[in-house]
Amino acid sequence: MNTFISTLITGTATGAIYALAALGLVIVWRGAGVVNFAQMGQAMFTTYIASNLIASGNSYWLAFVVALISGSLLGMAIDLLIMRPLAHKKSSSSTKTLAATIPVIASLGILAILQALAGVFWAGEERGFPTPVNSFYFKNGTGTLPFSAFNLFVIGVVLTVLLSLSYFFTQTGVGLGMRAAALNPEVARLSGIKVSRMRTLSWAISGAAGSLAGLLITPSTNLSPNSLDLILIVAFTAAVVGGLDSPLGAVIGGLILGIGISLVTTYGSPENVFLAILFLLLAVQLIRPNGILGGKQVRRG
């Protein structure tokens, strides 16, 4: 029973992180029409920055904040230096398929560059990454409780972020402008909303969300140039399960994946995880192509 509960709690905590990463993907997809395969590469990069700050004697929290800021700056830079010029170019000569494919390839190129740069700067060998609070199960007199302070920390942080993002998107003017720019760029521009600025902002928010996911997951995956590749796959699946257009769907998808993977690992065998993910991904796309919460409109791309 204890195993089951601890599986559920660990699954919820990692699921919360997947939810964050999936949300990052959804924000850029909605805001800029790009599935960003480089997202967790960006997160790996900023986690290295944090790791180096900690290694040179700074506090975890300073590193934490610096990583989040560099995550959003990196996202903005990718939009301004690569995605925006690409969008201008492709509009002249493109079929619809092409328009959706080129940014995907560009994001893979960015991923390759970030991973190689991390290798050049910080070597290829794995390193650990600390947690701000204890990651061992709580001691309770004689026995142990089936979760750790870090589990609770992760769930708390992610919940706070999700609530703030939801407030931002529904209750503030900039949030309204971002949603308008995503849903109908033409009407948004006629309303005076600077759509390209909103796009850059979605890259920034998504970059920060990805970075946060990186900081929270790395203690359990260790850090290497490729260490977050799998998180991208899981986050992508979570986003598709929830419907790529739906932020709430991404969160639910992330939790489903987190708890599901936790259960498969504990009660099945770890090597079945990818087959399970593949099965889920194909099943959702064939049975409910818009995801469990996606809109009824025809998918983009």
Partner: peptide
């Protein structure tokens, strides 16, 4: 399966296939 997927969906799904298939070997 793929005829029904497009653009980024197909890209992501094929990426997962690339990851998952080697575990068939086990």
């Amino acid at each position: 399966a793929a005829a029904r997927l497009s653009g980024p969906y197909l890209a992501g799904t094929t990426l997962v296939i690339a990851l998952a298939l080697p575990s068939m070997a086990n």
